[in-house]
C-alpha cells in the first residue's frame, strides 16, 4: 500500500489521505488530465479494479471562490482599517469574467483483496473538456467514459465510440451540466 502511494505520488499533483469513516475513501489523488492513464497503469499493476468514472460540473465555482476570497480580503482590510481608526474602504466589485470554469472527472478504484479505496480526480477546462481515455488499461472504463461523455460532454480522446450511449441517438445535450435544464 505504501509502495502504491509512493508510486502515485510520483505521478500525481497531490496525494492526500482521507478519513475513511467520514468520507468513504482512503486516498484522494489529484492528477493532471494527461496523467490519468499513468495513474490507471499504476493501479492496474497493483491489482486494483475500476469501480466507476464520473464527472462533476463546477460551473460558477471559480467565480464563487473569487468572490469569497475578495470578501474575506475586504473583511480583513475593513477590520484593519477600523482598528487603525480609519475610514473603511469601499468594497470593489469582483471581476469574474476572466475566470475559467472547470469540470472534474473522478475515477473510483478499489481492490478486491484489501480495503483501500483510491479516488483519482482531475480537472479539465469546462469549455474544452478533453482528457485521454483509459480503456486500454481497463476495458471496463469504456462504458463509464461513454456515460460520462453523455452526461457532461467530456471528450475522452482514444475512446472508440462516443456517440450517445444512454441518451437517445440524436441527443446533442449533456444533461448533468449545471446549465442544462429540461
Amino acid at each position: 500500500m505504501e509502495e502504491l502511494v509512493a508510486r502515485l505520488e510520483e505521478i500525481a499533483a497531490s496525494v492526500s489521505r482521507a478519513d475513511y469513516d467520514a468520507k468513504g475513501y482512503h486516498l484522494d489523488v489529484t492528477v493532471a488530465p494527461d496523467d490519468v492513464e499513468k495513474a490507471a497503469l499504476v493501479l492496474d499493476e497493483a491489482g486494483y479494479t475500476l469501480e466507476a468514472i464520473t464527472g462533476v460540473d463546477w460551473l460558477g465555482e471559480a467565480a464563487r471562490k473569487a468572490e469569497a476570497e475578495a470578501k474575506a480580503a475586504y473583511a480583513a482590510a475593513k477590520k484593519a482599517a477600523e482598528e487603525a481608526g480609519e475610514e473603511p474602504p469601499e468594497m470593489e466589485p469582483v471581476d469574474t469574467s476572466g475566470l475559467k470554469d472547470e469540470m472534474e472527472i473522478v475515477y473510483d478504484y478499489t481492490s478486491y483483496s484489501h480495503l483501500f479505496r483510491v479516488m483519482v480526480r482531475c480537472r479539465v477546462d469546462r469549455d474544452n473538456p478533453e482528457l485521454p481515455s483509459i480503456h486500454q488499461v481497463f476495458p471496463g472504463a469504456d462504458w463509464h467514459e461513454k456515460e460520462t461523455h453523455d452526461f457532461f460532454g467530456i471528450v475522452f480522446t482514444g475512446n472508440p465510440d462516443l456517440s450517445p450511449f444512454l441518451l437517445p441517438e440524436d441527443a446533442d445535450y449533456h444533461p448533468l451540466r449545471k446549465d442544462f435544464s429540461a
Binding site: 467520514a22 468513504g24 475513501y25 469501480e51 473522478v106 473510483d108 479505496r117 479516488m119
Partner: peptide, 19 residues
C-alpha cells in the same frame, strides 16, 4: 465535500458518490 459509500446489493457493489 464528497462522500462515497458502497453496499452489497443482490447483483454486486452498489456505490453512491455524493457531492
Amino acid at each position: 465535500g464528497d462522500y462515497y459509500s458502497v453496499v452489497e446489493a443482490a447483483r454486486g457493489t452498489f456505490g453512491v458518490r455524493l457531492v
